[in-house]
């Protein structure tokens, strides 16, 4: 059947919206089937958009700093009162901490504990977040050029923020502990109980698989357990803030929706992190001796 070029162009133009919708649907299915399929594209775009996003987000950081400063001036008197009482309390804690540190050092010497020091720190600025999507991630303006690698822990101020899932040359993506796909082995300090901290895209992640399950109480500190070898043990995560029937809720120490600067810590644990293998490849993960397990042995 012969068609003139104008007719052909009109046909393509009419079919284009439908074809593109189908293409988008196919991409969704492919992306669901193989999570890593679009990872190289993601990293490439983050690398290219990084400088632009960095420049655009700078005024926002400045604005936030300015707001903080104004608030600081307004609340100076009250802050001062609070700080004075805090200071008196903390001086007592300092004495206790010094005594415990000394005791700890002596006990470590007795047991010949191998210390697990951080190898390096990189400070980076958050340049983008998930923008209302059904994920909790953040882009930061540092990448493999600064020595970052997949799996490294990201912390800010008082606690754990998440870990690096994608690392480009100049930008990297942080999977926050609140994301639906985040699972972190933790210990509830007071109980003591081992559990997995599972994000569900809400502000406060849940504790699942708690052992023993009924000993967790509100107000107890949650720290990483170091199991699995991804994070070092004893990184502060948050406090138990509510007890739901489906698991205790944890209020993170870090305000994850107000991240300005974060610190990426390389503990040397993520060196040989295996790449996730698609489920069809038969096996999901290699068993491997972790640095932590090696240290215990």
């Amino acid at each position: 059947m012969y068609r003139s070029p104008t007719q052909l162009r009109a046909t393509i133009q009419r079919a284009a919206p439908l074809l593109l919708v189908l293409l988008a649907a196919v991409i969704i299915v492919l992306g669901r089937a193989d999570e890593r399929m679009f990872a190289p594209l993601r990293i490439a775009l983050a690398d290219d958009a990084g400088p632009v996003l960095g420049a655009l987000s700078r005024p926002l950081v400045l604005a936030a700093t300015a707001v903080d400063r104004v608030r600081g001036v307004v609340e100076m008197y009250q802050d001062n009162l609070r700080l004075e009482s805090d200071n008196a309390r903390l001086l007592q804690w300092q004495q206790a901490a010094l005594r415990l540190a000394e005791q700890n050092r002596e006990l470590r010497q007795l047991l010949r504990v191998v210390p697990n020091p951080a190898l390096s720190y990189v400070t980076a600025r958050v340049i983008a977040d998930s923008g209302g999507g059904y994920v909790r991630t953040a882009l930061i303006d540092a990448g493999s050029k600064e020595g970052l690698a997949r799996g490294q822990a990201v912390i800010a101020g008082q606690g754990l923020v998440g870990r690096l899932t994608e690392v480009g040359e100049r930008a990297a993506r942080v999977l926050l502990i609140t994301d639906l796909n985040s699972r972190i082995p933790v210990i509830v300090d007071g109980a003591p109980a081992a559990a997995v901290l599972a994000g569900d895209n809400s502000e406060r992640p849940r504790l699942i698989y708690a052992v023993p399950p009924d000993r967790i109480k509100i107000g107890e500190r949650v720290v990483t357990s170091g199991e699995g070898g991804l994070f070092p043990p004893d990184l502060p995560v948050g406090v138990v803030s509510a007890l739901d029937p489906e698991g205790a809720r944890v209020e993170p120490f870090v305000g994850l929706s107000q991240l300005g600067y974060v610190m990426v810590v390389n503990y040397g644990l993520a060196r040989d992190l295996p790449q996730p293998v698609p489920a069809s490849a038969g096996h999901r993960r290699h068993a491997r001796p972790t640095a932590l397990a090696a240290a215990v042995r």
Partner: peptide, 9 residues
């Protein structure tokens, strides 16, 4: 790609 969500949505 930028938000890190499911691709194509």
């Amino acid at each position: 790609l930028l938000t890190g969500g499911p691709v194509g949505v």
